[in-house]
């Protein structure tokens, strides 16, 4: 038992430093969500329940509006599918890695948020450590940060009113940092630029609500057109 506990601690200690940017982001964002939800009459317990079961930043923010609007499960279902459509791509990217995973696989699929996905792409386990456990630790830590942030926000929002205008920029800042980090590796740059160009063009052409779906289609088409040179570049 002692040995097992020690090993567990080692895995968490190795995973924790990678999750620090998400820790800040999630606590901030989660608090903003909890405060917003409380302002619509749903207190900390609701924020907690939503953080545990939904666990999706942008979808939860959209959900606040839908909860305030009234009972419409079908509408809620379709809107959530659309807001989270990009997550289908994360699954595609994690197919190979999760293939060999055991019991934890289902939870890790559930917990594949934007930020956790980004960490799964950038963080590497130390030599000799089980890859599955290392990434599981990252997933669980991120989920805990989110639950704490949302719940604390619900408690604060129930007690006082705060001007959180602009706090959602924490998500933008987080992705800018991840983008710059990925940019360091030369072979990532062409796909990154294709993604940047396609999403800007799609946003201008299709507007704020439809561009993610349009951009996903555009990316599949563009990447299939440039498969030969890109496949070689990424391999090298």
């Amino acid at each position: 038992m002692d040995k097992r506990n020690k090993r567990k601690k080692g895995i968490v200690a190795a995973a924790f430093p990678h999750t620090i940017p998400v820790l800040t982001g999630y606590v901030f964002m989660g608090m903003a969500f909890g405060i917003l939800l409380a302002s619509k009459g749903y207190g900390a317990l609701w924020a907690f329940a939503m953080a545990v079961t939904i666990y999706a930043g942008s979808a939860q923010f959209v959900a606040v509006g839908l909860m305030a609007a009234g009972f419409d499960p079908l509408g809620a279902f379709l809107v959530t599918l659309m807001v989270n459509a990009r997550h289908v791509f994360y699954g595609v990217s994690m197919l190979e890695r999760f293939k060999s995973y055991g019991k934890a696989k289902l939870y890790m699929i559930f917990a594949l948020t934007d930020e956790t996905f980004a960490l799964h792409c950038s963080a590497k386990p130390p030599k000799g450590m089980s890859e599955e456990r290392f990434y599981l630790a990252i997933s669980v830590l991120d989920h805990l940060y989110w639950i704490v942030g949302c719940t604390v926000g619900g408690l604060i929002g129930g007690a006082m009113s705060i001007n959180t205008l602009g706090i959602d920029f924490v998500m933008t800042a987080l992705f800018v940092v991840i983008f710059l980090d990925q940019w360091k590796k030369k072979q990532n740059r062409t796909p990154a630029l294709i993604g940047l160009g396609a999403s800007i063009v799609c946003r201008l052409v299709f507007g704020p609500n439809w561009f993610i779906l349009a951009c996903m289609a555009a990316l599949v088409i563009l990447f299939s057109l440039f498969k030969k040179p890109l496949d070689r570049e990424v391999r090298e």
Partner: peptide
């Protein structure tokens, strides 16, 4: 996709 998606998320 991961690198393209990060850019897409910024946008």
């Amino acid at each position: 996709l991961p690198f393209a998606i990060t850019a897409m998320l910024v946008v």
